[in-house]
């Protein structure tokens, strides 16, 4: 067996990034851990409370509801954006003038900042001046996202789909473009159906980009803050108060730093666990379906 040569000196190249991450992420995370076991009344004076904040949080109905709303939101947008993104990518042209046109159109929503997207949809959905809200009202549909929780949810979900499906489309399109023509020629010779081509050629070849798309969309949707905050402010009532909105209310609105720190850590651990499960499952699915020892 030939031992693989590994040049460990390359790790020094990572050192600047490591220092930046330490400064921007590790030190703040340590501070959050410190806050989570203490209470403060301001003036940088802290009192040790042990794991009381965690105990309160885990038994808090408010946290449970925000967590369930967050899971439901992420589940719904993944269930819509991933199949929709694949479907749109499959219909996009592979050559000709349509390629740049489609790519630019797809990339446009991704270029708009989160708060601007929120503002666009906040005005778009208003019954008095918004095109969507006014049209729906004219059609006799009772739509008011400031009063009706279902309308608020629909607005936030459609907004997210409008903003982020393009990302899934572009990633899937990149995966589809990397499939050599020989695969399609072989499928044609075998008389494979459109579904068989999708199931046995396109989907396996897209699985790595799909992994990235699902991971990115899950993590982004699980920590979504700006867009729903601008559109609904977490309401009506608490119906669109997701974890991040609840966290900000707790930390900045109520200035409960210890409680908010404990919530941040549990939130962080949940995202870490879900991302790790997604990554492990999807990378292993790929390894089992691809031949061993290949290039």
């Amino acid at each position: 067996m030939i031992a693989k040569q590994v040049n460990q000196k390359a790790w020094f190249m990572v050192l600047p990034v490591f220092l930046i991450v330490a400064f921007s992420a590790v030190i703040p995370l340590m501070t959050v851990v410190n806050y989570s076991v203490q209470d403060t009344f301001g003036n940088n004076v802290f009192f040790w409370v042990g794991f009381d904040w965690f105990r309160d949080l885990i038994h808090s109905e408010r946290f449970h509801q925000a967590f369930l709303r967050q899971l439901l939101f992420s589940g719904i947008i993944l269930a819509i954006e991933v199949p929709l993104g694949i479907a749109i990518a499959l219909t996009m042209p592979k050559k000709g003038w349509g390629v740049p046109l489609c790519l630019v159109n797809m990339a446009l929503p991704l270029l708009i900042p989160w708060n601007v997207v929120g503002t666009i949809w906040q005005i778009f959905g208003r019954v008095d001046i918004g095109l969507l809200g006014h049209t729906l009202a004219a059609l006799g549909i009772d739509y008011n996202y400031t009063q009706d929780p279902i309308a608020a949810w629909l607005t936030v979900i459609v907004m997210d789909i409008w903003h982020w499906t393009s990302l899934v489309v572009l990633l899937c399109y990149a995966g589809l473009c990397s499939i050599p023509d020989a695969y399609y020629q072989a499928a044609r010779i075998d008389g494979a159906s459109r579904w068989a081509i999708f199931r046995y050629i396109q989907l396996p070849k897209m699985h790595r980009v799909l992994l990235i798309a699902i991971l990115l969309r899950f993590m982004d949707s699980f920590m979504i803050y700006t867009e729903p905050f601008v559109v609904t402010g977490g309401g009506p009532g608490n119906s669109t108060t997701f974890l991040s909105i609840d966290l900000v209310k707790l930390a900045i609105g109520q200035f409960d730093l210890g409680n908010a720190a404990a919530m941040s850590l549990v939130y962080f651990l949940i995202i870490l666990l879900c991302s790790w499960i997604f990554y492990t499952v999807m990378s292993n699915v790929g390894e089992e379906s691809s031949p061993k020892g290949g290039a």
């Binding site: 340590m30 806050y35 203490q38 940088n44 802290f46 040790w48």
Partner: peptide, 15 residues
């Protein structure tokens, strides 16, 4: 590093 609100147990945890 007072702003980080260090305590003995959390310092031990990170160490």
């Amino acid at each position: 590093f007072n702003w980080m609100a260090w305590t003995g147990p959390t310092a031990a945890f990170f160490l």
